[in-house]
Amino acid sequence: MTAGHRTVPHTADIAVEAWADSREECLAEAVRGLVESFAHVGDPVPDDSVTLVVAEGDDEELLVTVLDEVVYQVEVHGRLVVDVSTDERTGAAEGQTEVRLATVPVEAADQVGAVPKAVSTHELRFGRDAGMWRAHVVVDV
């Protein structure tokens, strides 16, 4: 099965659903889904990046941490995440995951929806299901 994502209406909010063969690709699809819920970027050429080093733990915590950073980058730095890569080895100590978020200025995109305010832990799911990685997260807009 191929990777993908979609947004679905949720009472006064949106829900982002993502799926992929690996945890890392599913995480990236969730980020793409969140960003596409409010911005259209086209074929962006990243000009900056942010690196998070996240302690290995609960997969759902990883998802929330990364999506919270996506929202933070928009709100505080005026940066839009356009690509995600993860590495459990390079630059990260054992037991940690390094997540690189490539960004562009928000002005490089057209706003097509409400900018998210927060990531909710209500109805949060991120894990393997029927041989695939799947994510479901509700986002306050």
Score class of each variant (00 low, 15 high):
G78I: 06
A30G: 06
P105T: 04
R32K: 13
V99A: 10
E94T: 09
L101R: 00
T121P: 02
V70W: 00
V45W: 03
D110H: 11
A130T: 11
A20S: 15
R89M: 05
A18D: 13
G4T: 11
A118H: 09
E75T: 12
V64G: 00
L62M: 08
E17T: 10
W19K: 10
E25I: 09
E29W: 10
A93Q: 15
V8H: 06
V82W: 00
V41C: 14
D58L: 03
V70S: 01
G127Q: 06
A108Y: 01
M1R: 11
G42M: 08
E61P: 02
E25K: 10
Q96H: 14
P116G: 11
L67K: 01
D129S: 12
D140Q: 09
D68F: 02
H10P: 05
A118N: 06
E17N: 08
Y72F: 13
V54I: 12
F126E: 03
V50T: 12
V31M: 06
E69A: 13
V112D: 13
E61D: 14
A130W: 01
V84M: 04
L124D: 02
D68H: 03
T65I: 02
S22L: 04
F126I: 05
L52S: 12
C26N: 13
V104K: 05
G95N: 05
T51R: 15
H136G: 15
T7L: 09
H77Y: 07
H122S: 13
V53T: 13
V119I: 09
G57H: 01
T103L: 03
V70H: 00
V8P: 03
E75H: 14
L52V: 09
G95C: 05
V66H: 02
V35H: 08
G57F: 02
R128H: 05
V82H: 01
M132Y: 06
R134L: 11
T97Y: 03
G131Q: 01
W19E: 15
G127P: 00
T11L: 10
T51D: 13
W133S: 06
T103R: 00
G4V: 10
V81C: 03
V139T: 07
S37A: 15
S120N: 08
G113P: 04
F126S: 03
R89W: 05
V139F: 03
V138T: 08
V141E: 11
V104L: 06
D129P: 01
Q96P: 06
R6P: 05
G42N: 05
K117Q: 15
T51M: 11
P105E: 14
V106A: 08
R23I: 04
T121I: 02
V53S: 15
T11C: 04
W133C: 05
G33V: 06
V41M: 12
A109M: 07
A18H: 07
E60G: 01
E123I: 01
V115E: 14
E36C: 11
V35K: 06
V66F: 01
D110S: 12
V50W: 13
S49I: 00
S37N: 09
V138L: 12
V53N: 15
S85G: 13
V16H: 14
V112M: 06
T86L: 13
A20K: 03
S85C: 07
A3G: 14
A109Q: 07
V141R: 14
G78L: 08
A28R: 09
